[in-house]
Structures are given as structure tokens and as C-alpha cells.
Nucleic acid binder design. Structure first.
Lengths: 346, 346
DNA sequence: TTTGCCGATGTAACCGTTTGCATACATAGT
DNA sequence: ACTATGTATGCAAACGGTTACATCGGCAAA
């Protein structure tokens, strides 16, 4: 494998200067048609591929954006990435992907690495809304867009979901079926998750039902959900008191369902369950799960679009987008229509 | 936001030459301790971050590897990526991620883009084992490792799963429970999927049961699986002839299960089902699914490790790794132990 | 014929590092 | 005192492009 070809090789072969080759390759208009053809023929013949790293150094732009996610192997991220990719591909950008594993120090370090690579911008799902990472980016004047998290900072662009609203609509649905008791199981301590719970709790309170509400924290996994059922029975008597349960993710909800089934507690007549995310198969679970969805792919797209804007126009007004979550009603929770008769039966 | 600092700024401030700063930053031993400290202090104070793009140009290495997957929003890829990331992070490499959307032309174009970015190596889940993409990389002498696909090319490194074996063990289990009839539903026309079916079919033939085997192709999705059940009943009489069904992915298997349940066909006594992949919740499906798993994360790790080797040592002997798939027995298929009694009952 | 302008091309500086080689100084060996 | 040796540093040439500016022939206008 011989040395990589460079522009000067092509230039020599075409009998022109490097500058001319460069002009041809960047579609500069000021090139004679015949010259252009000759150069392009040689480029094609020798399969010359220009070095972006040289070009990047010279132009001080890399057409690369950094993406920092909390966890690569997270289905949420996949969807996000799909949206991002489509936008980047359209704009001929490439993506440098890294994951922070929920560690703020690592996150900051990743940002530094991205900056050293002189990325044109960053898309990030930050562990915390404001942190060293965002500070570093601001200090270096690198445009960035926060995903799945709101930030109060003036200059911050973000695209997130209205999680308060998500919790609220879940509560709204649940209130309509008037169970005697409400449970809110909140998950990891992250802004998005907290807000879901908060929205739910707010709405319950607004309806003067706060006395009938119990909150559990740090219930994260399927197992957590499954394992907590006995204590819900012991402490909240969900087996005899009609109860509505809201969880901050579908895994927990499914665990709960399994536990309830095992204890032969009828769903949704005795206990109704609402999850969050609409993961694959929520729809086809043993009891199809009522849940709140976020437009993940759109979130990625919008964030990437916003970043493109920021890159093009440094003083573009930061966008703060809150996507509306969508409530999907399935069998784990009675719909307004179906519940009343059933609840009478129970 | 003032201009980015460069080495020469630091050099001027420290009263040394650029070369010295460079030496300090790359831990060259030949620097007086006092000088090193002075420079490092300034670097820290001014938060100077060296430009990797300049460094890359100079050293002709980027410490970046390109990753080309067929579909970003594929759970399979997530796992793979996790394995890859861990290795890259350890070796201080970054990853340029792109996705081909199963399009060979796009794939080739992506490879070209990666080459222009002068990546040090490429990890790819190719649409086809040999194609323009691999040819381009070979021609340019870029080390690459194929994932989830075998290649017959001498110089190819790959890490894949022994899919033939996967199909075979599924058949083996199924044969032990001796249904009267076998069905093999193969999915997308990709090497990996084809081999799963092939392994299954082979083993059935080896046991002289090929006459009892029917094969369906292009059954890909949950819906495909669900929708095909009526015709399986009509054409193969799975409702009365005890049948073992092998599908090349869990979605299809789940669809089949739903269809069977709907038609009140008892599983696994009348019909048994084996899937492939062990997707999340296969374990907790209405009927927990027997399935074959691949060590996805290991695949990513091993591939990345191999790539690191190739990069370090250009004439490292290519590794050809076939990971052993693992059969996970659950309720959709009778185990050797549980089946006999149950089948008697039926 | 001269002037002026324009389109096509070449020249060379620059982007921000790395690194081979030269230099300079100090210390040790003779 | 005079090489040898070694250590710390500087100089300058790469790396492979982009681009402002200079150059130059040709043609229209004066």
C-alpha cells in the first residue's frame, strides 16, 4: 500500500497548481471547464480522497459534532440518535459519539476531548442541567444543545419533553376513574424523572386528593417494581382499596403488573397502572400497558436542527422546546368509558 | 470569546519555544522539571486544550475509529456499541458513528467519508460480507473488522456468532421433544439470519426428518408472525399436528405466540416455539420465550480489541472469531424434562 | 496602439501541531 | 585545557489542505 495521494500529486499529474485542484474540489466557479474535467478525471482514476483533517485545520471547521449521551445501550438514546443522524447526514456532518455512564466527571472529560477534536458543536443529554460540562462549552464558545433536560441558563438551547405535563395527564386520566388511593413511584433522581412524578403529584393535589397519595422513591427496575408489590399490599392495602399507580418508567410498571397478577389482584378494576416511555412490547404485554410517550426521534431531530442553526448563526436566539408527551391508553388502566361499569362490579 | 489559544501562545508566555511546549504536553522525558512545571501551570491557568486536528495532521494518526452499523436504532447495535465503547475508551480512541440503513451504496459512501476523515480503523456490520466497502478499505490499507458477519476473504478479520450452531441447537432441543412437524420461518435475507435457518434445517435433515419440515421465508416482524398463524393452521394443521416452530428472531416468535394463543392452540404442548436474540422481555412474555442468544456485547469488545491489534501491528494475523450462541430454555418449548409428561396429558 | 478589465491560474502564507537536527551549556574524563 | 558525553532547548521543515493576492493573456473600449 503506497503512500496516500495528496493534492500535489493530482496537481502534478494534471499539470496545474495545487490551488487549482483545490478549487475544482470545492466547486469554486473560477475554473475553466476543461481544466475542471481534467482534474476530476484524475481524481476519479486514482481514487483520490481529500484529507478532511488537513482541510479542517485550514478552515478551522470540522463538520463534526460531538454527541454525549448518558448511556449508549439505552433504548431511549437509540431513538434520539436516529433523529440526530438523519439531520446530520442531510447537512453532511459526522458524529463523534461518546457516553458518560451517568458520571459528571467523565462527562466533563468527554467534553474536553470533543473540544480538542474541535467539534463544531455538541449535543448532550447532561447528567445535570448545569454542570462543569456546560460551563466548559460556554467558556470555549462552542454551540451546544441540551437534550432531554431543561436548563434555566439564558443562553441555553434545549429540547426536552414537558415531563410535568406527562405526569399531569397521567394523573388526569387516573382521577377520572377515581380510585380510592394513588401511588407514585418515582425512579432515578434525574430532572426528567423527577418532573414526571412532580407533575403527577401536583395534579392529584390540585384535585384535593393529596391525602390519598403515597410516594415511593428510587423504584427503578422491573425487579424493583415486582418486589415492591407485597409491601404495597401490606402498607397500602392495594388489594382491597382501589388504587391507581403511576410509575416513571415502563419497566417498573411491568414489574408491578407481574406482582399484581401473581397476587391475583385484578387489573385494572382493582388497581390501575400507568407507565412512562412506551417501550417495545408495552403494547403487547400480558396486560397491555397504559403509558406516556415522548417523541424521542423528534427530540433528536429538533435538537440537531437547532444545533445546525446555532453553528450557522452564532447569535441565533436559543430555542427552548418542550415537546408534548402523549398518553396512550391501554388495558392496564380503565379508560373513561370502560372503567365505570367495571369499577361498579368490583 | 477570544481566539482559541495555541501552543505558541503558551510558549510565548512561558518564554520557551513551541517545541518545548509540545514536548511537555506529550510527556517527552527530555524536559527540565522546572520548565515542565512552568508550562503545565500556564496550560492549566489558561485552560489550553491542544488541537487534535493539528496533531492528527502532523502525526498522520487520528485516534479515531469509524463505526458503520446497518441501523442505529437497533437494540442489537446498542449492545454492540457498549462493548465497543468500553474498549475504545480504555485505549483513548474516539468513535465516528454512522449508519447505512441497509443500503450498500450508502455504506460505501460512508466508508469514503470515514477515509477522508482519516480514521485509524473501521468496525462494520456490513450489509453483505464482501462489497465495495470492504474493497475500498483494503485498497486504502485501512484496518477493519467485520462484525456479525463472516467473510471468506483471507485478510478479513471478523467477529460473529456461530449462527449455524445457533440454528442447530434449536433444532436439537426441538428434536428431543419430537413433534410431528417442523416449521422454520426465516427472516431478512442477511447472512446471519440465513445461517440460523440453515443450521436448523441441516440438523432436522441429519435426523432424517426433512420430510416433516416446511420452510417459510421473509417472515420478519411481530405482525408477520401473528398474521401467518391462520395459514399455518390451514396449510400445516398445526392445531392438530404437534409442531415445533423456529423463527429467526424473537419478534416473529412473539407474534406467533400471540396468534397461537388467540386460536387457543396450547403452547408448548401442541406447538412449541423457539426464537432468536433474547430481546428484553422475551423472558417475561405472556409465554416466556425459549430463544437463542448471542453475546452481543462481547462481540463488540472482541471486534474492537482485534481492531486495536490490527492498528498496532499491521501484519497481525487476522482473527476469525465465531462466538458460541447460547440456548435459553423457557416455557414456549418443552424442556427435555418437562415435555414428556405434558405431552402425554395433551 | 494603449488602457482597463476580466477570467483563469499560480504563489505563498497560513492553519497548529510534531519531530529530526542543530545548538548551547554543563559536567566528566584524560 | 581540551575533547567527549549528555541534557535541555530552539529552529525549521514537514503534515495536506485553503485562500488572499499577484500575475498574465486576451479582448473591448478609447
Amino acid at each position: 500500500m503506497s503512500k496516500q495521494l495528496t493534492m500535489s500529486d493530482i496537481a502534478r499529474m494534471a499539470g496545474v497548481s495545487i490551488a487549482t485542484v483545490s478549487r475544482v474540489l470545492s466547486n469554486h466557479p473560477m475554473v475553466r471547464e476543461e481544466t475542471r474535467k481534467r482534474v476530476l478525471a484524475l481524481v476519479k482514476e486514482h481514487r483520490y480522497e481529500p484529507s478532511y483533517v488537513a482541510r479542517n485545520l485550514s478552515t478551522r471547521r470540522t463538520h463534526t459534532i460531538g454527541v454525549v449521551v448518558d448511556d449508549i445501550s439505552n433504548p431511549f438514546f437509540m431513538e434520539l440518535a436516529k433523529g440526530i443522524e438523519s439531520v446530520l447526514q442531510k447537512n453532511r456532518y459526522t458524529m463523534l459519539l461518546t457516553s458518560s455512564s451517568w458520571d459528571t466527571d467523565k462527562e466533563a472529560e468527554l467534553i474536553r476531548t470533543l473540544l480538542r477534536n474541535r467539534v463544531d458543536g455538541v449535543l448532550i443529554t447532561p447528567v445535570h442541567p448545569e454542570s462543569e460540562s456546560t460551563e466548559i462549552m460556554r467558556r470555549n464558545g462552542v454551540p451546544f444543545v441540551i437534550m432531554n433536560c431543561r436548563s434555566d441558563h439564558d443562553s441555553a438551547s434545549y429540547v426536552s419533553t414537558d415531563n410535568l405535563e406527562g405526569g399531569r395527564v397521567a394523573a388526569e386520566l387516573m382521577l377520572r376513574t377515581s380510585p380510592a388511593h394513588f401511588l407514585c413511584l418515582s425512579g432515578i433522581p434525574h430532572q426528567s424523572t423527577n418532573e414526571r412524578a412532580e407533575g403527577f403529584i401536583q395534579e392529584i393535589k390540585n384535585h384535593g386528593r393529596s391525602e390519598d397519595l403515597a410516594v415511593y422513591e428510587e423504584v427503578r427496575t422491573f425487579e424493583d417494581g415486582y418486589n415492591i408489590v407485597p409491601s404495597l399490599i401490606a402498607r397500602n392495602r392495594v388489594d382491597v382499596v382501589s388504587t391507581g399507580i403511576f410509575t416513571s418508567n415502563d419497566f417498573v410498571a411491568m414489574g408491578i403488573l407481574d406482582g399484581l397478577i401473581e397476587h391475583k389482584i385484578p387489573v385494572p378494576s382493582q388497581v390501575s397502572v400507568i407507565g412512562y416511555d412506551d417501550i417495545a412490547f408495552a403494547e403487547r404485554y400480558r396486560i397491555p400497558l397504559t403509558t406516556v410517550v415522548q417523541a424521542k426521534q423528534s427530540m433528536g431531530q429538533l435538537a440537531a436542527d437547532e444545533l445546525m442553526e446555532l453553528i450557522q448563526d452564532r447569535n441565533h436566539t436559543p430555542a427552548r422546546l418542550l415537546l408534548k408527551p402523549r398518553l396512550i391508553v391501554r388495558d392496564s388502566c380503565p379508560t373513561a368509558q370502560t372503567h365505570p361499569p367495571r369499577s361498579v362490579v368490583q
